[in-house]
């Protein structure tokens, strides 16, 4: 009888391994990325949203990406919603990524539409981390959406494709792992914290943003000249960016 009880208890404990909210480390070891939130969003306030990354979330991530989450990425995690004067302006989320330099943890800052705003390494053993922390690399990721980031890496996410990102050839694998982490962060945020994210979106979900390469077309220039501001030197036109909103749910004309 005792043996049967023992077997049942063991089976229960094994079945209990599906418990999804737990984390392997004790909670006294948790550290909120408060300094990085302060650096990424100076003068802003933030509120935590604890969500559970489940095995279902993991499956959904694998539906959207050619790679998915590692087991230790499951469990309870926090999304920090950042606000300024009552308006939600973005999110901060820390996500690990397994690399050959060990686990890398990156604090990501996303805007209300889940585009990359900035990032900071919370843990990174790679000696070349300073190169990717430099503005030259960061500005290539800023403003990038999920689709744009996905186009920057190969099928399994292990290397860069084409000329989308300019880095030293030594840093290709490292840069790809950073982009992989960004993609997982965006997808996990969208899946686990859907309710919190949905309400603050500026661009509706399922729409795609396409960068407009030439903003000042001849017709725009003519219109500006009619308003006598065609040569206004107070406007830095090089920094002006425009995006086209494409409704992904509509079929293309044949």
């Amino acid at each position: 009888m005792k043996r049967i009880l023992l077997i049942k208890l063991t089976a229960l404990l094994i079945a209990g391994s599906i418990a999804e909210s737990v984390q392997a480390q004790a909670y006294c070891a948790l550290r909120d990325p408060v300094r990085q939130i302060g650096e990424l969003y100076p003068g802003h306030s933030y509120v935590s949203h604890v969500g559970v990354v489940t095995t279902d979330s993991r499956k959904e991530v694998s539906n959207r990406l050619p790679f998915t989450l590692h087991f230790n990425e499951l469990g309870s995690h926090t999304l920090y919603a950042v606000s300024k004067e009552g308006t939600k302006v973005g999110y901060v989320h820390v996500r690990p990524e397994i690399t050959r330099w060990g686990i890398m943890e990156i604090t990501w800052s996303l805007d209300a539409d889940l585009r990359v705003q900035d990032f900071a390494f919370q843990r990174c053993r790679n000696r070349r981390r300073a190169i990717l922390e430099d503005e030259d690399f960061k500005k290539q990721l800023r403003g990038k959406s999920f689709e744009e980031l996905l186009s920057l890496i190969n099928q399994d996410g292990t290397s860069l494709t084409g000329d989308g990102i300019k880095v030293n050839s030594l840093d290709g694998e490292f840069a790809a792992s950073v982009i992989r982490c960004a993609l997982k962060t965006i997808v996990v945020t969208d899946i686990v914290w859907e309710k919190q994210v949905q309400a603050a979106r500026v661009v509706p979900k399922n729409t795609k943003l396409q960068a407009v390469t030439k903003v000042y077309t001849p017709s725009v220039q003519t219109a500006l000249e009619r308003m006598f501001i065609g040569d206004n030197k107070d406007i830095d036109r090089e920094s002006v960016k425009a995006f086209r909103v494409v409704d992904g749910s509509k079929k293309k004309d044949s």
Partner: peptide, 13 residues
């Protein structure tokens, strides 16, 4: 409806 599953669900949700 294992006991641990139920406890876990209650702990988490």
């Amino acid at each position: 409806s294992g006991m641990l599953k139920r406890i876990d669900d209650w702990l988490a949700y």
